[in-house]
Amino acid sequence: MSLFAIMVSTILVNNYVFARFLGICPFLGVSNKMETATGMGFAVTFVTTLASIITYIIQKSILDTLGLQYLQTIVFILVIASLVQFVELALKKISPGLYSAMGVFLPLITTNCMVLGVAILNIQEGFTLLQTTVNAVGASLGFFLALILIAALREKMDIADIPEALAGFPITLIAAGLMSIAFTGFAGLV
């Protein structure tokens, strides 16, 4: 697969939120406002890309050589959790502005299953390091896209006259489901 095809595939066709249903928690949790959605989007892009590269190196150099593939999940979680902590520490020192902008979203990424999902799928697909990086960036951009789309919708829905029983999360889930259906329209693009 060409790099461009991987990119388009992860952003639109196999969007991690709408097609693979990963990262649903932050997708619903921080999408009330455009501002927080953007902050989360940036934070996830950053961490997913870094985590994918590091987990790929660990998988190839340690797990595969020792035949310990069954430790994949726990090792990857270890890597992601430490990475998030490290990024938080470093960001606090190097760029306090960016740190306060991302705020509470940084530690939340530890529990974002999309980060783990991307890392594991990279290995399953048999990507090279370059393909892994492109796939990770594409995946996070796809997540970013899904997040700002639903945030924009929710800002509109806030002032719409929605039946009481559906107001809040129910209508958000319905909207998310419809968007997921809409994204199946991209199937066959790549």
Binding site: I58, L68, L71, L78, S82, F86, A90
Partner: peptide, 20 residues
């Protein structure tokens, strides 16, 4: 492997928390 990685990350994080 797991213990080593855990130790490695732990040490790295504690160094990072001193550096940063």
């Amino acid at each position: 492997v797991l213990g080593g990685l855990g130790l490695l990350f732990g040490v790295l994080l504690s160094i990072a928390s001193k550096v940063f």
